[in-house]
Design a protein around this nucleic acid. Structure first.
Lengths: 152, 152
DNA sequence: TCAAAAGTCTACTAGTATTATAGGCTTTAT
DNA sequence: ATAAAGCCTATAATACTAGTAGACTTTTGA
């Protein structure tokens, strides 16, 4: 049940782009280089990932000198599930319970297949979290926790 | 977030071995060939998988003519999580939230990393299901559903 | 106007993991 | 003694992952 490096880096980059803006620039724009250095990611690999996310409509970009990437929509309207699916494909552990990419698995009776029932629960549990957590939720949680830790 | 074929086949085989016994034989013993035919799995591949499960202590076997495999413990005491971990490794989507196989991910501050917090939720949701569903739960659910469908 | 900065796009590659297949060995019932 | 069945290890084909490379386009600003 692993998240690929592509998925991990893409999620990290999106979270970085959703961070509350510094110095009045809006929308928050970051360059590949800035993100790759901060998150310790190969810049060329990250480039591919951001491009994919851009072509999928989650990011916009500005070319040329002083360019960079920024979120296509407010951080509250982009979920981890959207990002995950673009980079890592369906959330379901097995195709026969996928909403996005259903495929029969060839078991004798899919309707009463015990494995399918259990994996369906797993899929729903994962999708529930990923589809109901926005980038804004993530950055808020991070920042609340940081504040709380500073106080102690 | 995919379950490998190894994992899928292993789980299917274990569920088959947990099925209520036919014709008074106990513990329910099945041969590789019987399972592979019923579940449409390459018998040699299944052999490897069952051997792994055996060496991990979830199955016992009987060699020679009339031999086969049977569960090492009652179906109510073997969980999907145990089987999954033997065949597919840790449940966690990312190592830094794994209970079984923790590894630092190298983010600036692991304690307040937003991705880590979210993935930790995912890990717990998956583990909750897999570790609290026994083979007996699975076969019961299957059979209840079958009965219910016959009535309609 | 032209050079440098930055994103776009596609191809390629090394390494690893997955999904098997093959075949010899051991145990056991008859 | 032989056939059935599991035990065990090696190998192979394919796909995927993670990353590299490089040529191209757009934009800024000196």
């Amino acid at each position: 049940m692993r998240l690929s490096k592509r998925g991990e880096y893409g999620l990290r980059a999106m979270i970085a782009l959703a961070e509350p803006v510094k110095k009045g620039s809006f929308p928050a724009m970051l360059q590949i280089k800035e993100i790759s250095e901060h998150e310790q990611i190969s810049p060329k690999f990250l480039e591919q990932i951001l491009l994919t996310l851009k072509n999928a409509g989650l990011l916009h970009s500005k070319m040329g000198v002083g360019g960079g990437y920024y979120l296509a929509r407010p951080a509250g309207e982009i979920t981890l599930g959207q990002i995950f699916r673009i980079l890592d494909g369906p959330v379901a552990p097995i195709r026969c319970v996928s909403q996005m990419a259903y495929e029969p698995c060839g078991c004798p009776d899919e309707q009463t297949c015990g494995l399918r029932l259990a994996m369906s629960d797993v899929r729903n549990a994962i999708a529930d979290i990923l589809d109901n957590t926005s980038l804004a939720d993530v950055t808020k949680r991070q920042n609340d926790l940081r504040k709380k830790l500073v106080l102690n």
